[in-house]
Design a protein around this nucleic acid. Sequence first.
DNA 1: GGCGATTCTCAGCGTGTTCTCAGGCTGGGC
DNA 2: GCCCAGCCTGAGAACACGCTGAGAATCGCC
Lengths: 222, 222
Amino acid sequence: MLVVDDEVRLAETVQRGLAAEGFVVDVVHDGEEALWAATENAYDVIVLDLMLPKLNGYRVVEQLRAKGVWTPVLMLTAKDGEYDQADALDLGADDYLTKPFSFVVLVARLRALLRRGAPERPAVLSADDLTLDPVSHAVARGEVPIVLTPREFGLLEYLLRHKGEVVTKSEILDNVWDSAYDGPANVVEVYIGYLRRKLDTPFDRKSIHTLRGFGYRIDDKG
Amino acid sequence: MLVVDDEVRLAETVQRGLAAEGFVVDVVHDGEEALWAATENAYDVIVLDLMLPKLNGYRVVEQLRAKGVWTPVLMLTAKDGEYDQADALDLGADDYLTKPFSFVVLVARLRALLRRGAPERPAVLSADDLTLDPVSHAVARGEVPIVLTPREFGLLEYLLRHKGEVVTKSEILDNVWDSAYDGPANVVEVYIGYLRRKLDTPFDRKSIHTLRGFGYRIDDKG
DNA sequence: GGCGATTCTCAGCGTGTTCTCAGGCTGGGC
DNA sequence: GCCCAGCCTGAGAACACGCTGAGAATCGCC
């Protein structure tokens, strides 16, 4: 994945965030670099700011398309910019997002773009015989389906996307809970409890490990 | 290949892109030209925007088919257009794509159309013993026909086209209702209720699952 | 224009879900 | 063994969500 933005701090934040989501991210800061990078590498998707030094996003897409590079492009447009979203789409961008944007939304859109580009379903997430399919919103232990509430589902999805890693409670709060939320971190414990009750207790398994003082971890062999 | 779109920039971008993929592409910008061009030339495939000056895409396909021209047509439908995708297929288009679309997908779909060669009607949709034929507008549970109102039909078709996936209420509103609508999402619930009453209650079945907090899902095994 | 079919609005109800809180439990340091 | 911070859990309050019936508005056809 390629991220193009001249606001260095923003670009880096996005990069770190996306990396945390499991994407491999290159960053460049102007239009010429973007064009070069996108031509030389086969990225799966490009996040492109509209206002760029040397060559604006508008022209970058145009030239890429002219060269026969059809990598999906998500365009970042400033609300009050001189070009609008319709233009972006006209020129061959595949989706757009208005600044300022929410990180969660960005990730969702990128996933959607990747999905459109490669129409195969994203692999179901799993750990051991526990599976979670983001598309059908189905969770199962082996063959036995398990029904989860939205929060439980979001939490489990987050843990599975970071299988084998320790995730702290504050990471969980930032990513699974609404960013407006600033109540006690105890909710996380409560929901971990709910999950264990649904995922483990009836099957006499143990899928979510507590790392006292650090956070939680889910991994393949129980 | 013929590309018909009144947004000149978009049409040209598409033309260049497709040319880069090895297609020979003519471009026209309104419905009358499209009709004339498609009648005079034996194109292998036509990319047709729905919203066109003089004669909309809807009528173009209709008149082409009436004249015995069976060139495969890929229809471009704006999400907020007055006609929806179901209509496009009903009228003899062979595939459709919602704007904004990804070029990668466009090319893939065109290739698929060319490979199929002879226009092939979209298959009958089904889930379990529930069947829906978009062409004849017929719905049945097993052998028993069921009559649905247009809205009910549109909703069921949408659900069936996404069999096995969760569709949210807002996705449904965007795709089954036209985007002029911005009333409460409660209509969806109401219509889900109507469908269940017609599809399930008399047969003591359960075809549409509610996933509280997410949306609805229809799948094969009940 | 009139009539029935269809679509949509609205409010009420029951239930599922989220979150808070307080108290109990546990593991690790001393 | 004792203590404390961190974690777990049960109970319950507040809230959100989806379902439904009734009726108003609209559409389409005769």
